[in-house]
C-alpha cells in the first residue's frame, strides 16, 4: 500500500505522486505519515519535508514554510505558502508558530474548539 501525496503552493503543484512515507515539519515537530495513518489535519511550521518514493526511487526533499497538511484515506495533501529546494530567505508572515502564539490565542479567546 502506498500514499498518494500532493504538495501544492499557491501558484503551482510541487509534487504529485506516490510515496511510501512522508516526514513533514509540523508546527510542533516532525510528523511521519505512513499508509494507514489516521485522518489528520495539522498546521505546518518551517523546515524539511521528506517524501520517500516507492522502492528504488530514493526520496525527494523539499523545504516548506507554513501551511497545513491533511491526511485522509492514504491521501496526503500538503498546502504550503512556500515550497522549494532551499530554505526561503524571507519567511512568509506567520509561517513559524511559537507556543507563546498559541497560548496568547488561547487566552485571548476560547478558540480551542
Amino acid at each position: 500500500m502506498a500514499l498518494t501525496v500532493r504538495i501544492v503552493a499557491p501558484d503551482r503543484t510541487v509534487f504529485d505522486g506516490e510515496a511510501t512515507a512522508v516526514v513533514a515539519p509540523a508546527w510542533d515537530g516532525e510528523v511521519g505519515v505512513l499508509a494507514g495513518h489516521a485522518p489528520m489535519i495539522t498546521l505546518l511550521g518551517v523546515g524539511r519535508l521528506d517524501v520517500d518514493l516507492p522502492t528504488g526511487k530514493g526520496s525527494d526533499r523539499y523545504y516548506v514554510a507554513g501551511g497545513v497538511m491533511k491526511v485522509l484515506d492514504d491521501r496526503v495533501t500538503i498546502l504550503t505558502d512556500y515550497a522549494g529546494d532551499e530554505m526561503p530567505e524571507h519567511l512568509p508572515e506567520g509561517a513559524r508558530i511559537e507556543k507563546e502564539d498559541l497560548l496568547a490565542h488561547a487566552s485571548a479567546g476560547n478558540i480551542f474548539a
Partner: peptide, 16 residues
Amino acid sequence: DTFILSPSAGLILDRL
C-alpha cells in the same frame, strides 16, 4: 471530529 486536529480546529482555521 473524524480528524486528529493539531493543534486544534480553531487554531488551524485561525491560520487558514
